[in-house]
C-alpha cells in the first residue's frame, strides 16, 4: 500500500514538472515533437531509476548524521551531509556516462533512440532534484527509493509527452504572434499545472480532512487565505515541500 501510494503521489500529486518545476529547461526545449519528447522522457525514467536508489545508499551509509557508524564506534560523530550536493552530482554524472557505455554495448537500438539525450540528462534538474527530494523527504527503504525514482520519472515523462502533443496541435491555432512558441507554452504549462492540482484529493478519497496530502494542504491553505485573509506571507509551495 505504501508503494502504491508513493507511486501515484509522485506521478500525479507531486509531479516533477507541474508541482516543483524540475527539469523545465529540457521540458521546454525538447517538447516540440512527440517523438523526441518520448526519447528524452524514457531516458529520464531510466536515469532516475538508477540514480535515486544509488544516492539513497550513499545518503544512508555515508552522508547522514551518524551514517558512518558501520565503520566502527569512533565514526558515529561524523555528519557529512554538507557534502551531499557534490557527491550526488558526481554520482549522477558518472552514472550517466556509465549508463551510456553499457546501453551502447548491450542494446544499440535503445542507444540509438536515447543516444543524444543521455549526456543532456546529467544537467537536468529533474535528476538532481529527484535525489535531493529523496533526501529531504526521508524516504525509508531502498525499495521505496527505487519506486520514487521510477514513478517521478514517469510523472516527468507524462508531462513532456502531453505538452509535446499539445504543441504539435497548437500550430494550427491562431495564437497572438508575440505569444507564439515560448509564451504560450508557459501559459499552457501553467494551466496544466492547475489541472494537476485537482489530483490532490486522489489519495484521500477526496476527503481533505482525514489525511491531508501535500497538495490538499495547499488547497486548504488557499481557502484559508481567501476566507480569513491570513496576512502571513507563508509560501504555499514551500510548505508543500517542507511539510511531509
Amino acid at each position: 500500500m505504501e508503494h502504491v501510494e508513493l507511486f501515484f503521489k509522485s506521478i500525479f500529486i507531486d509531479n516533477m514538472v507541474f508541482a516543483t518545476f524540475l527539469g523545465m529547461c529540457s521540458y521546454l526545449a525538447v517538447s516540440k515533437k512527440v517523438s523526441t519528447a518520448v526519447g528524452l522522457g524514457a531516458a529520464v525514467i531510466f536515469v532516475l531509476a538508477v540514480t535515486v536508489p544509488l544516492n539513497w545508499l550513499l545518503d544512508q551509509y555515508i552522508l547522514q548524521d551518524g551514517a558512518l557508524s558501520w565503520l566502527g564506534p569512533e565514526y558515529v560523530e561524523y555528519d557529512l551531509s554538507f557534502l551531499s550536493f557534490i557527491l550526488f552530482i558526481a554520482t549522477i554524472a558518472t552514472m550517466v556516462q556509465l549508463v551510456e557505455i553499457v546501453v551502447e554495448k548491450f542494446s544499440p537500438a535503445l542507444y540509438n533512440s536515447l543516444g543524444i539525450f543521455l549526456p543532456l540528462i546529467a544537467v537536468n534538474c529533474a535528476i538532481l532534484g529527484g535525489s535531493l527530494f529523496m533526501q529531504s523527504r526521508e524516504i525509508e527503504s531502498l525499495g521505496l527509493a527505487l519506486n520514487y525514482g521510477v514513478s517521478s520519472g514517469i510523472g516527468w515523462f507524462l508531462a513532456i509527452l502531453t505538452i509535446a502533443a499539445i504543441r504539435e496541435k497548437i500550430r494550427y491555432s491562431n495564437v497572438p504572434t508575440p505569444l507564439r512558441g515560448l509564451g504560450i507554452t508557459f501559459i499552457i504549462t501553467g494551466l496544466m499545472a492547475i489541472g494537476f492540482m485537482s489530483f490532490g484529493g486522489m489519495l484521500t478519497q477526496g476527503d481533505e480532512g482525514t489525511a491531508p496530502s501535500e497538495n490538499d494542504q495547499a488547497g486548504i491553505q488557499t481557502e484559508e487565505i481567501n476566507q480569513k485573509n491570513i496576512d502571513s506571507t507563508q509560501v504555499v509551495e514551500v510548505s508543500n515541500i517542507t511539510n511531509q
Binding site: P178, G183, F186, I187, L191, I194, I225, N226
Partner: peptide, 28 residues
C-alpha cells in the same frame, strides 16, 4: 481581497508567460 491563487505554483508559469508576451510585443 487577496488572490490566494497567486501563491500557488501554476501562477508563476502564467506570469512568466505574460512577461514574455509583453516583451515580445514591444520588440517584434
Amino acid at each position: 481581497e487577496n488572490n490566494g491563487f497567486m501563491l500557488l505554483s501554476p501562477m508563476a508559469l502564467i506570469i512568466v508567460g505574460l512577461i514574455i508576451w509583453v516583451q515580445r510585443s514591444k520588440n517584434k
